[in-house]
């Protein structure tokens, strides 16, 4: 097994009265794809958002427990959230390119972190777009608005935008749920490629997708982490009855 990139211990999240995450202990290994599966409302997206502190801005959220990234607690008082989010990139459910050019979308992250030199930015933009397998489709229209791209292209652009800050961990929240099958398979191929250089945590509603692309699978139910194991084990030999029921489609 690869080294552990991130782990959580006794992670609880309360949203007002609701107890959304009930003591999650999970380990995310390096250079692997970890899939989070489970029925809607089980807390997997919320869990994903605690990993780069995107819940910070939400009112009435209380988080306790540990989230350790490379040995540092990301909820410690002296954490620089900007630096954290540079290290932990995020791709959202619906493609959300900014209303600016393709180039400026990719350069957005590096610019936040102080990169101003044109030559460096040019290089980052090209490399990120290449890594996200969209360079050939957009290289002649970098100055054109990103909103003119198709949905599938927009999502790959958003992945490229995340890659541009050179993250180490990539969080993906159902990145293909708004896309057609062809765009979906392109993104799955891309994820397969990205695992070589990045650690990936992906939330998906699509069981086949989890089986196809992930090395580890975590099954969430009602705020609990029911089972975590290699994807092979979870899908062919689940230990918990509830996991088996969910995977075989008896509920969810």
């Amino acid at each position: 097994m690869n080294a552990i990139k991130l782990y959580t211990k006794e992670l609880h999240l309360h949203y007002g009265e609701a107890h959304v995450l009930k003591g999650i202990d999970i380990e995310v290994p390096e250079h692997c794809v970890t899939a989070l599966i489970g029925p809607s409302g089980c807390g997997k997206s919320t869990f994903l958002k605690t990993l780069n502190r995107m819940n910070d801005a939400v009112a009435n959220v209380k988080i306790t427990g540990e989230v350790m990234l490379d040995g540092e607690d990301i909820y410690a008082k002296n954490v620089d959230v900007t630096a954290l989010r540079k290290k932990v990139g995020m791709v959202f459910q619906a493609p959300n390119p900014f209303p600016m050019s393709i180039y400026d979308n990719i350069a957005y992250g590096p610019r936040i972190h102080g990169e101003k030199k044109r030559i460096v930015l040019d290089e980052i933009v090209e490399q990120s777009l290449r890594d996200a397998a969209i360079w050939d489709e957009v290289k002649d229209r970098l100055k054109k608005p990103a909103l003119g791209l198709s949905g599938g292209q927009q999502q790959r652009l958003c992945i490229a935008r995340s890659l541009a800050t050179k993250p180490e961990l990539l969080l993906m929240d159902e990145p293909t749920s708004a896309l057609d099958p062809i765009s979906t398979s392109k993104i799955e191929e891309l994820i397969d490629e990205l695992r070589k250089s990045y650690s990936i945590v992906i939330v998906t509603h699509n069981m086949q997708q989890a089986a196809r692309i992930s090395d580890y699978t975590a099954f969430f139910l009602l705020g609990d982490l029911v089972e975590l194991g290699t994807t092979g084990d979870i899908f062919s030999n689940p230990k918990d009855r509830r996991t088996e029921d969910y995977i075989t489609g008896r509920f969810g």
Partner: peptide, 27 residues
């Protein structure tokens, strides 16, 4: 201004002021 723009920018590490300056005011 769509919520997705805010999320996208904050997710890349933008501070609030950076988000306001580069996304919210232009939009």
């Amino acid at each position: 201004v769509p919520k997705a723009y805010r999320e996208g920018a904050l997710g890349l590490g933008a501070t609030k002021w950076y988000l306001i300056r580069t996304i919210l005011i232009p939009s």
